[in-house]
Simulated assay, not measured.
Amino acid sequence: MVEFRSATVADATRCAEIYEPFVNNSWVSFELNAPDTAEMGVRIAKALHSHDWLVAEADEEVIGYAYGSEHRTRGAYQTSCDVAVYVDSDHKRQGVGRSLYEALLPRLKDRKMHAALAGIALPNKASIALHQAMRFELVGTYKEVGWKMGGWRDVAWFQRLL
């Protein structure tokens, strides 16, 4: 059975392990170097302070996580946030990502967030399907905005009003 809870800095190692293949083996993340445990701990602490960070656990092991973070630094954006979800490859297509978002989005609304935004590096049919199932709407695409893995990458932006 999968359980969901707020993350702690103690989850940083496992979250970094889950995230690493998205950085090193795909263009899903535009980071070029996977964060280590210390950096992931800083990110978790920051998200918990300002937005939220949840983990999914099965058999006492973290198998995925989702979080909200600052969208932009200008003051008028303070009620908008970026969201992301990452699931361990052994647990994909089991509803973990959707369940994480179902738990995260109401928490962000409780924190007075009005709009959740998700940038999806293309192509990524699975992520698009997840976000559409969660009632995110396509609001635009940045063309050739990032260079990764030997090619230019587009990013589609999806938004959901909370």
Rank of each mutant, 00 (worst) to 15 (best):
E60T: 08
R43M: 05
V83G: 02
A121F: 00
V85Y: 03
E17F: 08
L48A: 03
T37C: 15
S69N: 06
E137H: 13
A116K: 00
K112Q: 09
V9N: 03
N24G: 04
E31F: 07
P106I: 07
N124V: 07
T73V: 01
N25F: 07
Q78M: 04
V139K: 13
R93K: 14
R160A: 10
R72V: 09
A38S: 15
Y142D: 10
P35A: 14
R74L: 09
R135D: 14
L138S: 12
Y19I: 01
E60D: 14
G119V: 08
G146T: 05
V62F: 05
C15R: 10
W27N: 09
Y65V: 07
G140I: 03
G68N: 03
V42Q: 15
R93Y: 11
L104V: 10
A129W: 02
K46N: 10
F22L: 13
V42H: 15
A156M: 07
A118R: 00
S99F: 04
T37L: 12
S6N: 14
R98T: 13
R111K: 15
A56N: 13
R160N: 12
E39R: 12
M1R: 11
T8H: 13
H131G: 01
Y101V: 04
Y142R: 12
I18E: 00
G151T: 09
L54T: 02
S80W: 00
E137D: 14
Y19H: 05
V55E: 08
W152C: 04
E144A: 03
L48N: 03
L54W: 03
Q78F: 03
L117F: 10
F30Q: 04
A76R: 10
E57Q: 15
D36T: 14
S6Q: 13
L108H: 04
H51C: 05
N33E: 12
S99Y: 06
L130G: 06
H114G: 07
R98M: 10
V155E: 00
K109F: 05
Y19N: 02
K143F: 00
V87W: 06
R160P: 09
A126Y: 01
T37H: 14
R98N: 12
C81L: 05
I63S: 03
A156F: 02
V145H: 08
Q132S: 08
R14A: 08
E144V: 00
N24W: 00
M40D: 03
W53A: 06
A7N: 10
V62M: 04
I128P: 02
R14V: 11
G146D: 01
W53L: 08
L104K: 05
A115I: 08
R14F: 09
G140W: 02
W147E: 06
